[in-house]
């Protein structure tokens, strides 16, 4: 009974994938698990994975809440690019790092408000509503940077993406947000209300839930997360590249959420799952690089792992939740199997 329960846990396969990847790495490079303390800072492959994965994790946290409300935000990559563009352009024109950050995050909140407006007020399907900004957003970022790659040299700004407080600051920020969101949503009733809106928006509205406000808020929060992630990315390289900063990061974030067991159909979500999902994706990327496969061909491995994890989760999902989508008088797959 015990092992079966373990197998049925929604994080079993993602964690198994993560462990497998770590083992692979350790076998090919015995010093993989080593962590050194040097000048009060931690170094090592594991720390690198965390640091490189910090922006994805942060965006995935915002994405988790959006997906829990039955939405999706495709624009986060473009928003991240805009954040970097705004901040770097401001610094390059002589502004201070602090105001640059505030300006960039302010812009991202506005963009989040815009997405939220389209979805919650106009009632447009989230996938198209955010596709608008995904398409136009990079153009807007180019507009800000006038098509140039803006480089900056501001030590304070550089701290966001590359600074250390024992651990990289970016990692601390991302984990801090993750824990903060977990405490906030599970400690209060916010999580339950978000899930309720995701499962049945109309019923929630009639039960007195402020569905519109909740949906609007999660898009703003996703925008904010994307903004901070964009700052991390641009500050790490001291530059704003409107075309390539945060390219495909929305897809990585969505994958992280889905691998973590949160369904794209909305409803119940798992922040712990999102953390594991983000780690799986980043570890995979790192692994492929360190094995020496061409960076672009690494995509093949990503595809394989994603499909493998989703497939492994799937039969079980359809056993446990199978009745939901097949509410009609058709037997769920499990019934067919057992009846046969």
């Amino acid at each position: 009974m015990r092992p079966r329960q373990l197998l049925r846990h929604h994080l079993f396969w993602p964690i198994a994938a993560l462990v497998l990847l770590l083992v692979l790495n350790t076998v090919s490079n015995p010093s993989f698990l080593e962590i050194r303390l040097q000048n009060g800072q931690l170094y090592g492959s594991l720390v690198d994975i965390l640091r490189n994965g910090a922006p994805t994790l942060l965006i995935a946290v915002g994405m988790t809440l959006v997906i829990a409300t039955r939405g999706i935000d495709l624009s986060v990559g473009a928003v991240a690019a805009i954040a970097g563009a705004v901040a770097c352009t401001w610094i390059a024109s002589g502004g201070s790092a602090a105001t640059a950050v505030l300006l960039a995050l302010g812009a991202c909140v506005l963009l989040g408000l815009w997405n939220g407006f389209l979805v919650s007020v106009l009632g447009i399907q989230p996938i198209i509503a955010t596709l608008v900004l995904m398409t136009a957003g990079r153009g807007a970022a180019m507009l800000v940077t006038e098509g140039q790659i803006i480089t900056v040299d501001d030590p304070l700004y550089h701290q966001i993406g590359a600074g250390f407080l024992v651990l990289p600051i970016a990692v601390l920020v991302s984990l801090g947000v993750l824990v903060g969101v977990a405490l906030l949503t599970r400690g209060t009733a916010l999580g339950m209300l978000v899930e309720s809106v995701g499962v049945n928006p109309r019923a929630s509205l009639l039960a007195g839930v402020r569905s519109r406000t909740i949906i609007w808020t999660v898009y703003v929060f996703a925008g904010l997360c994307a903004g901070v992630a964009g700052l991390m990315i641009s500050s790490n390289v001291n530059a704003a590249d409107a075309n390539n900063a945060g390219l495909w990061i929305e897809m990585d974030a969505i994958l992280a959420v889905v691998i973590g067991g949160t369904s794209l159909a909305g409803g119940r979500y798992s922040l712990a799952g999102t953390l594991v999902g983000a780690l799986v994706i980043q570890t995979l990327t790192t692994t492929v690089y360190s094995i020496g496969v061409a960076p672009n061909a690494a995509l093949v491995f990503k595809a394989v792992v994603v499909i493998a994890v989703c497939l492994l989760q799937s039969p079980r999902t359809s056993q446990v939740f199978g009745v939901r989508r097949k509410a009609g008088p058709r037997p769920s797959r499990s019934e067919e199997v057992t009846a046969a």
Binding site: A297, L299, V300, V306
Partner: peptide, 23 residues
């Protein structure tokens, strides 16, 4: 057959096809 969302499956398909190009 596995009831995985089209968004995810075709996203993986996109990664796969691009990766194969570079292989």
């Amino acid at each position: 057959h596995f009831e995985v969302q089209p968004f995810i499956v075709t996203l993986a398909g996109m990664f796969l096809a691009r990766g194969l190009c570079f292989l």
